[in-house]
Write a protein that binds this DNA or RNA. Structure first.
Lengths: 237, 237
DNA sequence: CGACAGATGCTTGTATACAAGTACTGGACG
DNA sequence: CGTCCAGTACTTGTATACAAGCATCTGTCG
């Protein structure tokens, strides 16, 4: 499961770093990216930076316009909805495939995960990390752990929308409680209850997005195809 | 929907061409790829070829081993099963979201598609093209047409396994009939029937794979991590 | 003052050169 | 004849150079 020792290439490190920065909104939606600037600030050449941007571009997190520039994708409500639909379909279907006796080790992991979610002084990113591990763990229970990779690759826009939502005012505590409810239904073997709890949970996560969009429209894509705008070139000196 | 005029880069053309060749088995699973050879045969430099291989690598269709070589991925039964689970979950959930009155234009497209599927002298690749358009069309009916992109990106191994199966002896006619049954249930507004027909169809597609695996094991991945082997270097001259 | 046109500096796309590492090959040696 | 070791040819990763295009700025002209 661990990555091979060989692929410690700088491209991979840069790709992961940029991806993290985009998902955590450290790189804001709509921000201009320059291969040259990134390369200089990271201390490498354009090549690994460029290849990373191409990968992020395929994930929809970055848009590259030839001869114009590269930009962090604005959060696209359509893609958010698509990701929501996909994850809900997959996670609910996964619950149907839960075996009679669950993998004790994974159950233990999930229990510890939920325990940590209870801590009140939990930072946003720490919570998201636990949230991610929790949902993936549930899918591992039904033998579909690797499918989470596909879900994760598709839900970049959804993740950013969630962070926008939680940056506002909502506390993660509500979601932690919902996680607990889902978990109890799963270990209790009550699949219909687990499905209902999961659906409620995922839709609660989704419901805030329109509110956020009204609040910060500049972070979202407006038209069907956003027109790129070269940023003003300001030279210091 | 059409791609911008600007991104007619050679990278995109090469990426699409290589992807097609991998999916149609024109490039056999396990085959060694060389960035230099591909570049030479395509009349371009390594750069666009390399970037295409990186994209295919992220899709799981190609494996790149630094300093060793690049190879067409062997068909991984685990990834086939994962893709089957994902597409089934998504396509069944999509049927639940069918609106009361269907988009007449899309319905017309699907009808024409099914008509063409009936032609007995249908080549394998032509059938696959129609099959792909049919399933995507169904998802467009329920407003989830763009999610098909995510499904398509995840089911490369499944597609190759299907082609291995159909190369053997099975006729596409059976699947055409199943498509018709699904379509009739959809236009008839009978969602449960549509779901049942869809599930039967998708599982029929899936069921042949183990047989194929027994017949041509060298095309499938065996262990958890396949060890790459540099091919013998044969120099003519 | 306004408008048009060219210079300029940025952007990404492609080509090429070099670096680092692997595996086979061939020969020397025990 | 077997074994070890160095050479060699290939691989991908990274750095750099050049090509082509867009947007802004600026100077000139009406």
């Amino acid at each position: 499961m661990a990555q091979s020792n060989r692929d410690r290439t700088s491209r991979r490190a840069i790709y992961l770093k940029l991806r993290q920065m985009v998902l955590t909104l450290e790189l804001a939606p709509g921000a201009a990216l320059s291969e040259n600037e990134l390369a200089a600030s990271l201390g490498v050449s354009r090549t690994p930076v460029r290849e990373s941007l191409i990968l992020l571009s395929q994930e929809g997190l970055v848009q590259v316009f030839p001869k114009i520039g590269s930009f962090v994708s604005r959060v696209d409500p359509a893609q958010v909805a698509d990701a929501q639909f996909l994850r809900e379909a997959v996670e609910l279907a996964s619950l149907d495939d839960l075996p009679a006796d669950l993998d004790a080790e994974v159950v233990g992991e999930l229990r510890g995960n939920l325990e940590r979610q209870r801590h009140a002084d939990l930072g946003l990113e720490e919570f998201f990390e636990l949230d991610e591990a929790f949902h993936q763990g549930l899918m591992r229970l039904s033998g579909h752990g690797n499918v989470w990779t596909n879900v994760a690759a598709a839900k970049g826009h959804l993740d950013r929308a969630r962070r926008l939502g939680l940056h506002e005012n909502v506390s993660p505590a509500v979601f932690a409680v919902q996680h607990h409810e889902i978990f109890e239904a799963v270990v209790g073997g009550d699949v219909p209850l687990a499905r209902a709890a999961m659906r409620t949970h995922l839709r609660a996560v989704f419901s805030d997005i329109e509110r956020i969009r009204a609040h910060s429209p500049e972070l979202f894509a407006s038209g069907p195809s956003t027109v790129p705008v070269r940023r003003n070139v300001v030279v210091w000196e």
